[in-house]
Write a protein that binds this DNA or RNA. Structure first.
Lengths: 107, 107
DNA sequence: ATAACATAAAACCTTATGGTTTCACTTTAT
DNA sequence: ATAAAGTGAAACCATAAGGTTTTATGTTAT
């Protein structure tokens, strides 16, 4: 299975609702800090902090373009979290299958 | 897409490494609080708090059995998080496909 | 050259989080 | 009946997290 420790920066980044909304926004297209800030009711420094955490989790990449910082979603990083989760979904399916087998056997 | 707000208790529960380890442990089989505690270096009340948060996120269900509380994984709840993530994986695949198309067109 | 822009960085504040210790309460075993 | 086991709950503590305001810095436009 996926290592719990290595998944930490990703799950940490995903834990905050504002950060998840930023991810949604960046899915539509890359954006500079100010433009992202406009969509929220919090200050730019607060957004900048969220972006840093997203970057640490590998969820976004930043391209410095003159005085702007273009933030771009890196959806591949979401796979780390997805893989971790999917392991258990598989597990669940297996259990369902086993349960079904037991039920079938009782017939 | 999956609502960001409704996903909050799940993502919050997943954010802590101890809680993710508890999930891994419960995937093997349901366990009472004390047995879970034995596997960690923290106190029982700390584990109990983690279990409460997992319960709030719908990730476990608790069956009170005499003086014991049996904690059982509810892997279906992981689907909430998984669905949220998969939306973006699909998005990424689409972009990859588009990019590929552009590249193909240039030939 | 200078003003406006986009942003980072630092200092600070409040609340949430993860942990502990202590105490109380049921349930089971003797 | 009494002791032990399994747990919850409360009080408390230190640190992390999310936010703000203020100050500084490099970049673009006039």
């Amino acid at each position: 299975m996926i290592n719990t420790a290595s998944a930490q920066p990703v799950f940490r980044a995903l834990a905050d609702p504002t950060r998840r909304e930023i991810i949604s926004m960046l899915a539509v297209g890359a954006r500079p800090v100010g433009e992202i800030t406009d969509a929220f009711d919090i200050t730019r420094p607060a957004i900048a902090k969220h972006l840093r955490i997203l970057e640490q989790g590998g969820l976004i990449t930043v391209e410095v373009k003159g005085r702007e910082r273009i933030n771009r979603l890196n959806p591949q990083a979401l796979k780390t979290a997805s893989d971790w989760l999917n392991y258990f979904e598989a597990f669940w399916d297996e259990r369902l299958a086993n349960l079904k087998t037991v039920v079938e056997d009782k017939k």
